[in-house]
């Protein structure tokens, strides 16, 4: 099977986000960049399918600035076979639509049997790119999947997702399809040291818009259907209070505080 994995580089979840003075974005200096955690599940699932189906390959595809190479290499170190990065200054300001368009364009000629990705990126939390990519490519989509079974003949995939009330929904899609990973799909492996040492020698290509046959107006800020007006941080929360002591006493103290201080009961 030929598997493609969409991957985004995002700030580490521990990052303390700061907003630029002109509110146009976040300050990126000093940020530690990591693989979007939901994409880690996608990479891991791709590798597990590869390990089961002889002759399979896994390609990591990302769109982002040059530094995204490092995160693609993490995927290669985990065991993926090759990587593609779409990097072009004209892509600055791309929204989900423009991003999906560029990603779809680069994947079209690859003829993947299966495309995996995270259900959303933890930086902007849009959760729109996978669906849009599926539309552009005319593929079935299965979103927020926490269990995936590819049929032996590689023609179908059974996808499981949690729905309201703890129930499960089971979808069957014809391949090629795009499947977006939810937490719980698997437990991603760490890249081993020998894997890391081999990563640099694996095939990797960088593609700009020209090579893709796309114009800046189509996919950059100008092609975006959505404009970000400004960024701001939520108001700072007052520090919480910890009530010490045995549970019974603490509960009593809590009720007293709710009654007398907060006046909510």
């Amino acid at each position: 099977m030929k598997i493609g994995v969409l991957m985004k580089q995002v700030p580490d979840t521990e990052t303390k986000i700061r907003i630029k003075d002109d509110a146009s974005g976040i300050v990126v200096d000093g940020i530690k960049w990591v693989m979007n955690p939901y994409d880690e599940y996608a990479v891991e699932e791709a590798l597990r399918i590869k390990e089961k189906k002889a002759g399979s390959t896994v390609t990591i595809i990302s769109m982002g600035p040059k530094r995204s190479v490092e995160t693609i290499r993490t995927g290669l170190a985990m065991g993926a076979d090759s990587g593609i990065l779409i990097d072009d200054p004209a892509l600055e300001g791309a929204d989900c639509y423009a991003t999906a368009k560029a990603l779809a364009k680069v994947m079209e000629p690859e003829n993947f049997d299966l495309i995996l990705c995270g259900k959303q990126a933890i930086d902007d939390d849009s959760a729109q790119v996978p669906q849009m990519v599926a539309e552009f490519l005319g593929m079935p989509q299965a979103m927020v999947i926490d269990k995936l079974v590819v049929s032996d003949d590689g023609k179908k995939a059974t996808c499981y997702r949690r729905i309201e009330g703890g129930a499960k929904e089971v979808l069957e899609v014809d391949l090629p399809a795009i499947v977006a990973a939810e937490k719980g799909l698997n437990e991603p492996r760490y890249a081993s040291l020998p894997g890391i040492m081999k990563a640099k020698s694996k095939p990797f290509k960088e593609i700009n818009l020209g090579a893709l046959g796309l114009k800046a107006e189509e996919v950059g800020a100008k092609g975006a259907k959505l404009k970000v007006k400004k960024y701001f941080l939520p108001a700072e929360k007052a520090p919480g209070k910890i009530i010490p002591g045995e549970p019974e006493d603490a509960a009593r103290a809590l009720v007293k505080m709710l009654r007398e201080e907060a006046k909510v009961v």
Binding site: V34, T74, A199
Partner: peptide
């Protein structure tokens, strides 16, 4: 090097 940085990040995450 890039590999050293990757090793550091991987071990940090593992830790």
């Amino acid at each position: 090097s890039e590999e050293e940085k990757m090793i550091q990040m991987m071990v940090a995450q593992f830790a």
